[in-house]
Structures are given as structure tokens and as C-alpha cells.
Computed example of a mutant assay.
Amino acid sequence: MSIVWIAVIAASVLSFAQKWVGYQAPPDVLERPRIARITTMLPIALLGALVATQAATSGVEIVLDARLAALGVAVVLLALRAPFLVVVIGAALVAAGLRALGWG
């Protein structure tokens, strides 16, 4: 078994253990205002980090290409409260257009 598979199995076991420990936490601990605020904001922060990583990197390099322009259009459309389908299609059209013009 390679070191990669050992790492994958170890990460899976640790992830399961962490989730199990979370279920064992008493409800009064989770209802504290500070903990509730953190647990509410944590998924947003993780999703933001994922979007930033996927939009601005290629391998180990930071790149500025059509993905960032499409992300900018998506942010503007979301700020204008456009329907989600319009946001996705608008961002896709901008990315496709810029790539057709040879950028990114």
C-alpha cells in the first residue's frame, strides 16, 4: 500500500472521528453565542477559501485569467440580486467569451 493510500485512509478516519466527537458535544455548549456564531460562519469561510483557490490558482501558481473575470461578473450579478441561473450563465458567458478572445 502506497503512502498516498495510507494518508487517505488516515484522513478518512480522522474526519469520521472529528464528526463523531461533534455529535458527542452537549447541546448547551453548542448554544453558546460565540460558538453558534463561529459554527454559522465556518461553512461560509470554507466555501470562500475554496472559490478563491479554484479561481486564482493553477497548480501551485497564482494566475489571472478568465475565471477571475467570470467570478467578478458573478459577484456583481449576485449583488444586483439576479436569479442564480442568470448568475451562472452570465459568468459562463464571460469566461467563454474571454477564452474565445485568447485570454486564459
Rank of each mutant, 00 (worst) to 15 (best):
P83F: 09
L47V: 15
R34Y: 04
P26A: 12
S2A: 06
Q24R: 15
E31I: 01
L42A: 13
S58E: 11
T39A: 08
T40D: 12
V60H: 08
S2R: 08
R37Y: 02
L47C: 07
I6A: 11
T53G: 02
Q18P: 00
R81I: 02
G59I: 06
I9W: 05
A100V: 05
A74M: 15
G48F: 03
G72L: 14
A45F: 14
V63H: 08
A70N: 03
V76A: 15
A11T: 12
V13S: 02
W103D: 00
L77A: 12
T57C: 02
L78G: 15
L71F: 12
P27S: 11
V4S: 03
P26D: 11
R37H: 05
L78V: 10
G22I: 01
R34S: 04
I35Y: 01
A82I: 05
V88L: 15
V88Q: 03
R99E: 15
V86A: 11
A82C: 12
A10C: 06
A45R: 00
V29T: 12
G97V: 07
L47T: 12
L42M: 14
A55N: 01
L42I: 13
V8K: 04
T57Q: 01
V76T: 11
D65A: 08
S58L: 11
E61W: 08
G104S: 14
I9C: 04
A52G: 04
L14C: 14
V60G: 14
F84W: 12
R99G: 01
L101Y: 08
I62S: 05
A69C: 11
L101F: 14
I44R: 03
A17Y: 03
S58A: 06
P33K: 00
M1H: 09
M41E: 11
I44Q: 03
S15H: 05
A36E: 12
V13L: 15
V8P: 00
A91F: 04
G102S: 02
A96I: 11
V86L: 13
R37D: 14
L98C: 06
A100R: 02
T40V: 08
T57W: 01
G90W: 10
R34A: 09
V86M: 07
L47M: 12
L42Y: 03
G90I: 10
L98E: 07
